[in-house]
Amino acid sequence: MNRAEELAANLADVRARIAKACAQADRDEQQVTLLAVTKTFPASDVALLYDLGLTEFAENRDQEAAPKTAEFATLRPAATPRWHMVGSLQRNKAKSATRWAHQVDSVDSTRLADALAKAATTRLDVLIQVSIDADPLRGGCPIGDLPRLADHIARTDELFLRGVMTVAPLGMHPQQAFAALEQAVTRLRDDHPDATVISAGMSGDLEDAVAHGSTCVRVGTALLGSRRLASP
Rank of each mutant, 00 (worst) to 15 (best):
M1T: 14
N2L: 02
N2C: 03
E5W: 00
A8T: 01
N10P: 05
L11H: 00
L11F: 05
L11T: 01
A12R: 09
V14C: 15
R15F: 00
I18W: 06
A19G: 13
A19Q: 04
K20H: 08
Q24H: 10
R27C: 07
D28M: 06
Q30M: 13
Q31Y: 05
Q31M: 09
V32S: 00
V32E: 08
L34T: 02
V37A: 11
P42V: 04
A43R: 01
D45F: 07
V46S: 02
Y50Q: 11
G53K: 04
E59M: 07
N60D: 15
A66D: 08
A70D: 04
E71H: 10
A73G: 06
T74E: 08
T74D: 01
L75R: 04
L75Q: 04
R76S: 01
R76W: 00
P81V: 04
W83E: 08
M85D: 05
S88A: 15
S88C: 14
Q90Y: 10
N92S: 13
N92Y: 11
A94Y: 13
S96R: 11
A97V: 15
T98F: 08
W100Q: 00
W100K: 03
W100E: 03
A101S: 05
H102E: 14
V104R: 08
V104Y: 07
D105P: 09
D108P: 10
D108L: 05
S109Y: 12
R111L: 14
A113D: 12
A113P: 12
A115Y: 06
A120G: 15
T121A: 08
T121K: 15
R123I: 10
R123V: 15
L124Q: 08
D125F: 02
L127R: 00
I128C: 13
S131V: 09
D133N: 14
A134V: 11
D135S: 12
P136C: 13
R138F: 12
R138S: 15
G140N: 11
P142A: 12
I143W: 04
D145C: 03
D145K: 02
L146N: 04
A150C: 12
A150R: 12
A150H: 10
I153F: 04
A154P: 03
R155P: 00
T156G: 12
E158S: 11
G163S: 01
V167G: 05
H173S: 02
P174F: 05
Q175A: 15
A177F: 07
A179P: 12
A179C: 14
L181H: 02
Q183Y: 11
T186N: 06
T186H: 01
L188N: 01
D191Q: 04
V197Y: 01
I198W: 01
M202F: 02
G204F: 00
D205E: 05
D208N: 14
A209M: 07
A211C: 10
G213C: 05
S214H: 03
T215H: 09
G220D: 05
L223H: 03
L223N: 00
L224Q: 05
G225W: 01
G225M: 05
L229W: 06
S231F: 02
